[in-house]
Design a protein around this nucleic acid. Structure first.
Lengths: 242, 242
DNA sequence: GCCGATTTGTCCGTATGTATC
DNA sequence: CGATACATACGGACAAATCGG
């Protein structure tokens, strides 16, 4: 719960951009002006602007100003921007989520699994298979591996609701960084068993390693999406070559 | 070409992480120590660390330190992290790139095209269709739209080499922000004409809008990849809910 | 549990450089 | 050329979280 000043300014400017108080291609007020408006230091204003820039809202131009590059018409519904649980994403998109736990097992990370997941050799893991429904249509098949020692008391009931909520609310444990890889893979027997593929022979696959706020990896997940309901957005900023 | 101090520190620490001078899960030297080592201010050190964090190299923990979360074994070859041209990406992955220009046309942005691409209504555009080979195998089919007024003198010959290089080297014009969307779509007739699909009936599609350093969108591209050679990596950081 | 030392997080004010207009 | 705007960097202050004694 950041009540930091820079975060307040960030949210305020973001909202003004989203509601088109500042139009597309317009310049934002100068740093000097914003300092007056918010009654804070230059660093604080700059931090807020810098976060807007990394989110693709604005672009700073030395000597010129800060341009709004946010196009409201391009904001599509089903996004997977930051770290977001299935439940949170569904709610944000006004969809009804449901989860069916297909498998709930415990196992140990052998050499092969350790190399694949990034968990230390011999780690005790939960393995879950979960089918995710949106508005009663099965669309996503998840294979989750969690470190057992970091998630005490995980049950199929919790897994059917929201593991992230359990982590954050009950265990007071927060998610910090997630490294993800997106690929396209052929459908498997299991995919076809649970998901109506409509002739698609591929799945959109997100493989992720997730770290808690101590920098310890507690999750490895392969999330297999039906292609026609998959979308992933991203903003990249070019590094100056030097 | 940033010769900024923070960038020097960033690169230095990044290399020490990549070459395992700092091991996975270890703590980096404290800010205080780094200040001594580099003989600079705390803000400068913090900026370097902050960039490492957003790249998924480290994670800061208040009161504890900064943990290295970089796993060398997980660095796969074919990545599409930041903004990178086809040519640059191929070189980085030690592959031989080749481009064949299939179409080179000029057209005007009508209402439909304007809505699709984000270009202003009536803008004069170049439309290109390009087939991209890696090690002599056709793998990617690009549909590019460029704003003609921003890219004077574009020719099929330039398009066959590298448009980005032309922009940066010849026009002295730099790329700043790119907004991208990844989806999976069914193969089209055109895809199948040029790319050997091996029974795949989908393509991995990256749709991107790219802005120059004046914050003006100069490009809209749909890049269609054969699934078995597509991979996209990403690092996300969880925002504290508040 | 308390306290002090350490470490990161936030914020301020200022100075100087660079690019634009 | 001077004025404006963003970029980099410094040094200092205080807060918050952690850790060891």
């Amino acid at each position: 719960m950041p009540k930091a000043i820079y975060d307040h300014i960030y949210r305020d400017l973001k909202e003004k951009i989203e509601t088109e108080v500042f139009g597309y291609q317009e310049l934002l007020p100068s740093e000097h002006t914003l300092i007056q408006e918010y009654g804070c230091s230059r660093n604080t204003v700059r931090r807020a602007i810098s976060e807007l820039a990394s989110g693709g809202y604005v672009q700073s131009m030395q000597g010129k100003g800060v341009r709004n590059i946010y196009q409201p018409a391009f904001q599509t519904a089903f996004t997977v921007g930051g770290i977001e649980s299935f439940l949170e994403s569904a709610v944000r998109n006004h969809q009804t989520p449901r989860t069916k736990v297909l498998q709930f097992a415990e196992l140990e990370a052998g050499e092969k699994l350790s190399r694949k997941t990034g968990f230390p050799l011999g780690a005790s893991l939960y393995y879950l298979q979960r089918l995710r429904y949106l508005d009663d249509t099965p669309l996503i098949l998840d294979h989750n591996y969690f470190r057992k020692d970091l998630i005490p008391g995980l049950t199929p009931e919790i897994a059917a609701h929201s593991i992230y909520e359990y982590l954050e609310q009950t265990l007071g444990f927060s998610i910090a960084t997630s490294k993800r890889t997106m690929t396209v893979e052929r459908v498997t027997q299991i995919d076809e068993t649970y998901i109506e593929m409509n002739d698609y022979n591929c799945m959109a696959v997100i493989t992720s390693q997730t770290f808690n706020d101590d920098g310890i990896q507690f999750e490895y997940t392969q999330s297999r999406h039906r292609p026609d309901h998959f979308q992933f957005q991203d903003v990249a900023v070019r590094k100056k070559t030097g």
